[in-house]
Design a protein around this nucleic acid. Structure first.
Length: 312
DNA sequence: CTCCAGGTTCCGG
DNA sequence: CCGGAACATGGA
């Protein structure tokens, strides 16, 4: 199997109207490495270089990878049934209407896990940046149409790297977590494939053994890598949304309360609901104008600033 | 120059 | 169980 190229036969996969929004699917914050290429997208699907282009009513992909891509994009997920399972909140309806056809991918496990280990306290753009740096530095080079692409580095390769090398990819304090997790997986201490056989609770428990993996990251990996569509990651965005929409005029809501609420309120496709809420909020968010430096908040900010500098 | 970002971990109530 | 703080880096 040679490297795919422009001359490879392409295949058209039929897609019903509103059955797929490729751009939203690739840009909604579940995956971070797909890039525009002309009217389509290029990237590494595992270790295969792939081009995907959405046209009215169909998807254009390399023939030899058609099945693989259809599975990756989860074209078999029953969106009408999924939408029907959502609560009929105005916010939920608006979020779905914003990007109908957005799908939860079936991502390669390690790749998904590793990128979300690096995601903590980072903007989406930064996550993509770190991911690309890691691919270029440690990943297998492949190519599509003369375009150099890079597979995500394997756990074994990553385990051989030094913490300092990872830091040069902009990882900061995440470098140690990613390195140790790669080592634990490379040596078999944690088996990502075996986790697929476990129930949600046991699977989450295994994932949380890895350094840098807590409840939120584990839920992302369960949702994007293990097809646990009820898994509901709660990050700062979702937390803000939930408080605002479902707990207004409530001074404090414990995270434990939020978790219980989401499981009950959003149901078996909660992960899908979460992704629609997240994407809509992120894309329509307007950053409030910075206020003048006068006011009551100043003391707190100064205290934090002073506490932050040690030995400078 | 300040603020904050798809969190996790450790620590004291 | 719950709230706080530290943890690195970079773009706005």
């Amino acid at each position: 199997m040679g490297a795919p190229s422009l001359t490879d036969p392409m295949k058209e996969i039929p897609v019903p109207a509103n059955g797929l929004d490729l751009e939203a699917t690739l840009n909604c914050g579940q995956v971070f490495h797909w890039r525009r290429h002309g009217p389509g997208w290029v990237g590494a699907l595992g270790e295969e270089a792939v081009y995907m282009e959405q046209r009215p009513g169909k998807l254009l992909v390399p023939r030899i990878h058609a099945d693989r891509i259809a599975r990756y994009l989860a074209l078999d997920h029953p969106l009408p049934k999924i939408y029907a399972s959502f609560p009929m909140d105005p916010a939920m309806i608006e979020a779905v209407a914003f990007a109908p056809g957005m799908r939860i991918l079936r991502q390669p496990r390690w790749e998904c896990l590793a990128t979300f280990i690096t995601s903590s306290m980072k903007q989406v753009a930064h996550i993509a940046q770190m991911s690309h740096a890691l691919r270029i530095r440690f990943g297998k080079q492949i190519e599509w149409d003369g375009l150099p692409l890079f597979a995500y580095p394997t756990p074994a390769r990553m385990a051989q790297a030094s913490e300092l090398e990872l830091r040069t990819c902009g990882l900061g304090f995440r470098a140690k977590n990613l390195l140790r997790s790669a080592q634990m997986i490379a040596c078999g201490e944690v088996d990502l494939e075996a986790i697929a056989q476990l129930d949600d609770s046991a699977a989450r428990e295994q994932l949380c053994r890895l350094p840098g993996v807590g409840t939120k990251v584990a839920n992302c990996v369960l949702l994007f890598g293990y097809e646990r569509l009820e898994s509901f990651p709660i990050d700062v965005w979702i937390e803000r949304i939930l408080r605002q929409l479902y707990f207004p005029r409530r001074r404090t809501v414990a995270t434990g309360q939020l978790r219980a609420f989401t499981a009950e309120h959003f149901g078996e496709f909660g992960g899908y609901a979460q992704q629609y809420l997240f994407h809509h909020a992120r894309m329509t968010w307007v950053r409030p104008k910075p206020k003048s430096k006068q006011g009551v908040g100043i003391r707190k900010k100064q205290a934090k600033s002073l506490a932050g500098r040690r030995g400078a």
